[in-house]
């Protein structure tokens, strides 16, 4: 017995529409509430936490698509991957923009100092830049043009996800339970790809042993 899922064209359109609606609608609602001071004692902190955790959620979701596709032998899941990845960057963008606009309130010198001096911000910034590169090369045109380099560039999603996890656990004061849950989820998702992730290591090992 095998489970099979098959989406019709319209179901895919509908699901994609739902992703757009949720991702855009939620952000709009939260920013509207924050702007009108209806988001608790410290709307700046609330917005930073919301955008940060949402970006991570979406990143993990995008990494769930190909294991799902394999599990259900249904390649259609891959059709949601780019959209989820783009929204992960959308929230990461809001996260950094909110940090600069509302936390630092446009003190650019402070931003530079924070990126250099605060390891968890350095790490977050590095992840952000990777996600930016992936976003800019997410079009089919870029994919065609870059051919094989496209895949190697987009494999950087794995180090980016690890950096995001590190940024998260490093940023909390002492309540590491939730970051640990996220790290566990990421570990599971990377576990599905262990062959792929270990391939370069194995290749090097083989090269080393064969040169004896």
């Amino acid at each position: 017995m095998s489970l099979r899922i098959r989406f019709s064209h319209w179901q895919i359109v509908l699901l994609k529409g739902l992703i757009h609606l949720l991702c855009l609608g939620w952000a709009t609602l939260v920013y509207w509430r924050a702007a009108s001071d209806q988001l608790g004692g410290d709307p700046v902190e609330a917005v930073l936490h919301f955008t940060g955790i949402s970006a991570f959620n979406l990143l993990l979701l995008s990494l769930t698509m190909s294991p799902l596709a394999k599990m259900f032998k249904q390649g259609q899941f891959i059709r949601f991957r780019r959209l989820l990845g783009l929204y992960a960057f959308f929230y990461a963008f809001l996260h950094l923009a909110s940090f600069i606009l509302f936390e630092l309130q446009l003190e650019w010198r402070m931003l530079l100092a924070e990126i250099i001096e605060r390891p968890y911000i350095t790490v977050g910034m590095a992840a952000w830049l990777i996600l930016l590169a992936l976003t800019l090369t997410s079009t089919q045109a870029a994919q065609r043009k870059m051919v094989r380099r496209w895949q190697s560039l987009h494999n950087w999603i794995y180090p980016a996800a690890a950096l995001v996890a590190l940024h998260y656990i490093w940023s909390v004061k002492s309540d590491i339970v939730q970051p640990l849950i996220y790290i566990a989820m990421l570990a599971i998702l990377l576990g599905f790809r262990k062959d792929k992730l270990l391939r370069p290591v194995k290749r090097r090992y083989r090269a080393l042993t064969s040169s004896d």
Binding site: L22, V30, H49, S54, L60, L61, T64, M185
Partner: peptide, 11 residues
């Protein structure tokens, strides 16, 4: 706030 913290993360 509680809902959005867990947005989309079925896992």
């Amino acid at each position: 706030l509680k809902q959005m913290g867990f947005m989309g993360a079925g896992a």
